[in-house]
Design a binder for these strands. Sequence first.
DNA 1: AGAAACAATGTAAACGTTTTCGTTATGTTT
DNA 2: AAACATAACGAAAACGTTTACATTGTTTCT
Lengths: 327, 327
Amino acid sequence: MAVTIRDVAREAQVSVATVSRALSSPDLVRPATRDRVLNAAAQLGYQPNRAARGLITGRTGNLGIVVPDLNNPFFTGVLKGVQARARQADYSVFVADSDEDRATEEQLLRAMAKQVDGVIVCSPGIDDTQLYEAAGTTSVVMLNRRLRGVPAALMNSASGMRQIVDHLVALGHRKLVYLNGPRTSWSNKERRRGLRVATQQHGVELIELGPFPPRYEGGLQACDLALAAEPTAIMAYNDIMALGVLARLRDRGIVVPDEVSVTGFDDLMFAALCSPPLTTVAMPLMPAGMLAVDLLLDGLNAGTTEVRQVDLDTQLIVRATTSPPPA
Amino acid sequence: MAVTIRDVAREAQVSVATVSRALSSPDLVRPATRDRVLNAAAQLGYQPNRAARGLITGRTGNLGIVVPDLNNPFFTGVLKGVQARARQADYSVFVADSDEDRATEEQLLRAMAKQVDGVIVCSPGIDDTQLYEAAGTTSVVMLNRRLRGVPAALMNSASGMRQIVDHLVALGHRKLVYLNGPRTSWSNKERRRGLRVATQQHGVELIELGPFPPRYEGGLQACDLALAAEPTAIMAYNDIMALGVLARLRDRGIVVPDEVSVTGFDDLMFAALCSPPLTTVAMPLMPAGMLAVDLLLDGLNAGTTEVRQVDLDTQLIVRATTSPPPA
DNA sequence: AGAAACAATGTAAACGTTTTCGTTATGTTT
DNA sequence: AAACATAACGAAAACGTTTACATTGTTTCT
């Protein structure tokens, strides 16, 4: 049915081996014949059968990525980067959504490992031993999580947090509240770490609350607890929680940023659109996705056992939810 | 390296043919030997090589989906559905993001067609002839777009629009503005269609403006034009535009819904979170994704040439941006 | 000029399955 | 009991590539 390498060979009056070479290692054939082959291939609209190629080379030309929730713009951001970079390198990408469930996550990872040359894992949930096991089966790159011996694309959350603290302290804040996200998440740990050193260096008071679910409702809930501590600024684990905080503050008639400053984290689309627009930290989502692909491909091609873990910079985006504290 | 069907055959003391049968058509082997094979397979951790299988069966076990923008929650919603349903059927899904570009869209579609058993196309942009061509190469299911001879999973936008109009008219509105999205998009056409018949039936005045870019900025821009027409309700093409409208109204000191009612379309997450929470229409995103997969698989397995185009119902979600018009 | 190296191409094996066909054992009908 | 259908299994071909090896013709070296 489909046009095969044999058809091209016949058309170009050469053997199938020559066709194969002309396409995958062009310098092995004479320019004249190469052109003949290429023309024939183009004319017939030949596309190599990837399954057949994969069968013999052991390479599938596929990449996998497993994410906890496709509805979370954070992950679609990196997915977009992954997707774009993979396409440039002529790879296709499988995507799997684990629905935040650790068991399915592991299952998906395992299933995917058979079909791809490498997997990008964005899952805060799945545990270390599972990951090491997967890393044995196929190439693995971690996203936003550091694990010994496994390459990783990291976004410097700690640095983002310190930028927030620097900003708030410069405005004159001296008593800050941080609303924790999930305790187990690497991101939350990193953010706390950045937070601790920054507040200690500046000698300002830090009150930690939570953990809270990293969602709108979590923000609503956390807000009242935060206010009880009477801070001048509230730092949420992420934008969605911050949105909850803003909503609750408005309900209670507390004016942002005049009476209390609020910050988020992630710079999701609506951070710029809510009111007042949210001061937050922008994550290099697409760059991280592209980096992850590069790391994966490096590992595959170079065959070097060098394990690279690369940090990408985050950036504070100052909008309208932060101002000097009330006098 | 990996464990192959031969290893299982040796372990179970049968031929490779029997192993293959025991796994893919269990009723062809005696229960006793089947158990032996299954045990051996389980013990060795055997996983069939999909490339090899695909080579001979002509089936890849893969599905593709091409979307214009992964950052758009609309598409990730259906993607989530696709993904979930595909996993149940033991299919993997390739995802491709065209970045709203028609040329890449076509290119992606073409590239994907070779590697999958079927493709789900969510692209409003790509033109009919391209689609028909793709439908010749591989199985195609359209999402939210009707095309003769091509199966489709459709969300009934027209019905959603009529629900909005019914709602507004019931509240007492008599002069409505609709802010058009992209003229070429099937969704916009459908929404207008529903709008027209509903307003005519009720005998209320309808003013159409635009087209506007279906984005936040589009809403900002459209808002002032809309107000000039002095309607009592503004219906936006989608939630994001509606958000822009709300922002602009607030800036101009116009109170929603007391002075003017506003509606969106899509029920994205922030529609519930913005303030005031947006009255909008919920789309059955995940169901549509799952339906699309079902249609695809039906087409593959049944081999029937019956072309199904299924409509899914949308639902009006009344929140706080609609109320009776000012007296 | 003969040998040796090399460049360009062809032949055929290999990758891991599924499936056709043939063979043997097991019932079932006359 | 002979003939025949049927069930269970094995041998081998096939899928479309890549690649190791063989072959040929051409250049380079001595």
